[in-house]
Design a protein around this nucleic acid. Sequence first.
DNA 1: TGAGTTAGAATGGCACCACCCGTC
DNA 2: GACGGGTGGTGCCATTCTAACTCA
Lengths: 197, 197, 197, 197
Amino acid sequence: MIITVASFKGGVGKTTTAIHLAEFLQTDAPTLLVDGDLNRSALQWSGTGGFDFQVCDEGQAVKFSRNAEHIVIDTPARPSVEELATLAGGCDLLIVPTSPDALAMGAMLQMVDYLDKQIFRVLLTIVPAKPSKRGAEARAALESADLPVFSTDIRQLDAFKKAAEQGVSVNKVTGDRMAGIAWNCYQKVGEEILKNG
Amino acid sequence: MIITVASFKGGVGKTTTAIHLAEFLQTDAPTLLVDGDLNRSALQWSGTGGFDFQVCDEGQAVKFSRNAEHIVIDTPARPSVEELATLAGGCDLLIVPTSPDALAMGAMLQMVDYLDKQIFRVLLTIVPAKPSKRGAEARAALESADLPVFSTDIRQLDAFKKAAEQGVSVNKVTGDRMAGIAWNCYQKVGEEILKNG
Amino acid sequence: MIITVASFKGGVGKTTTAIHLAEFLQTDAPTLLVDGDLNRSALQWSGTGGFDFQVCDEGQAVKFSRNAEHIVIDTPARPSVEELATLAGGCDLLIVPTSPDALAMGAMLQMVDYLDKQIFRVLLTIVPAKPSKRGAEARAALESADLPVFSTDIRQLDAFKKAAEQGVSVNKVTGDRMAGIAWNCYQKVGEEILKNG
Amino acid sequence: MIITVASFKGGVGKTTTAIHLAEFLQTDAPTLLVDGDLNRSALQWSGTGGFDFQVCDEGQAVKFSRNAEHIVIDTPARPSVEELATLAGGCDLLIVPTSPDALAMGAMLQMVDYLDKQIFRVLLTIVPAKPSKRGAEARAALESADLPVFSTDIRQLDAFKKAAEQGVSVNKVTGDRMAGIAWNCYQKVGEEILKNG
DNA sequence: TGAGTTAGAATGGCACCACCCGTC
DNA sequence: GACGGGTGGTGCCATTCTAACTCA
């Protein structure tokens, strides 16, 4: 299965999503993460080799993809409309992460306008904790616009930052009480992908 | 005074910084905000006309700049190295916002490597509240690397998201107790700019 | 009171001793630490400004010493015999730290051979925990050689390394159970100095 | 093969490393250890003649080196930058031992800044036992800085102190269960030298 | 609009257990 | 082979601060 993660706005958890979905899919079958981001965030994150799955950059993708059952592609920020069509055509599922704030939602709506509803699904990320209604409001807005959304939110948790610092995925973070909950978010998203895929 | 805001990574408060510095500088002299971001976030934000200063996109910059004493430029994410040199050459101060996490700090360090210490200054943004040590640690790391940093952090506050929703700058947000504190952050940064500039 | 810390062998806790005695003496009166080590370890340690006392290098010593009641001098490793005489002549107390192993003890014995018993006192450092007899054996050897020794050992504790990492003295270390015990070692040594001085 | 051991900070196992590498290389071919340390630690250690290889001080080096295939040079602590260039130019491999703590690592980084990556290799010494993560963290830091590191750590073991007391190398220590493991550390380092050299 | 209240996140402190080294 | 002690890991409680709700 080939999964592409793309967004028009940066800082909405695109790399975090790509990494943790790859980590989850690796539990199902050999998985490769292709780091197409210009900052090489994923490769930088994995500098110390704390991932179970394989990581490579765009140029090595063809070589490494032979041994992988699942492939997750982390794309550069702000793809052009033409690139967007290419990305959508080259995958089985296009995940569009967005945080529940006006700017990110606006950029997301702008993006999905160019996409077929069959190919993409929106993932709400960096959702504040329960007393906040941002997550629920954003979800309601998405559903009223009849856009496909993952039923699980990715919560805003410090554990994800710690994971980047420690160079591991969040399920291997030490010294954070919420790390298990953080990993659980992506587990549910991964299960939703495998079930519907 | 011409101030450019640029970063290699998205979602670190680049547009928020540009808007609020323009709002502050307007209290000193007529100010223009040039929205160079491909998402046109600033223009989208100001859709309802809730700003005191003028806003235009890149193409209109020359025309509007005649009436402005201060100009703030919001640049697209991930400028190339060549663009970076052009940006640095075309302003009096280049502000590099970064949140205090590993990925954003890495991208920031990558960026300032191409810049002269005389032209840029780092602004810590989205800094978590006091029990967290992220802000202090990031500041220590920057100072140990001998990078110029604004002495005031921009705190992680919901008021900034509400400002984007309401289409106004944070000093005009209603229904948020922390909005005054949020505005105070950028006020101090603005004063630091006017004093040193 | 002027206290000099010197040793013929490196890695025996010379800088750690100088820093923590300065921290202790600061509780008695304004104190200055003169970093004479070529590595500038103390200045590096204090880079983030985590000390109560003042720190300066050799060249600034005269200027800063005017405001200080106590002065602690951290000397370079392996002083020559001539330097040793100068160091001994320029202080009220010369502390010779040594760990309880054959190499460090040998270097220490070599050193004190050039010194008057009235001016120096040996400080056992990096002493392993109780099941080990190294500390007791070293203390017995020193006393049988009729050398003046501080009655308190500085124990081998991870807290001292954490202190260097955090850029603070061990009494300000967070997240270490033994930090209080570590600080207690130097407190007792400091009290012994003030009492006998 | 000429191997030089040097460090900016004392107490990081420089002499211990020189002695045990000489002991290992002696199993390959006649080996000479040149004791350049001002404390004459190696000569003191070997006072009772417990080494298989030959030992001499700097002045005798030329004379003894005629009969040796391998030469290991133990240098004085804190060489000047000029001496460093001379040392690097006079050997096939420059080993820089460092313990995994902030002060030693800082001094090491300061030192290798003057060296070519082709000539030196870092050796992690005095690494605490497994529950501690110091060794792994230091190794990760070295690798992220792209510095050449020996793949084997020298562990912090009492056997090395006993070896110094008994005047023998650690493979001849009696009455210590961990002596074999201690010797094994240097065996692996020695094999890495012979293989890559 | 402003003050008091509640829920949740994050740090720090403490107690408990596991592992390993050093001695007996 | 057994015991004591240090280090790291985890779980639990206390504290602080933000964001939301409620009341005047």
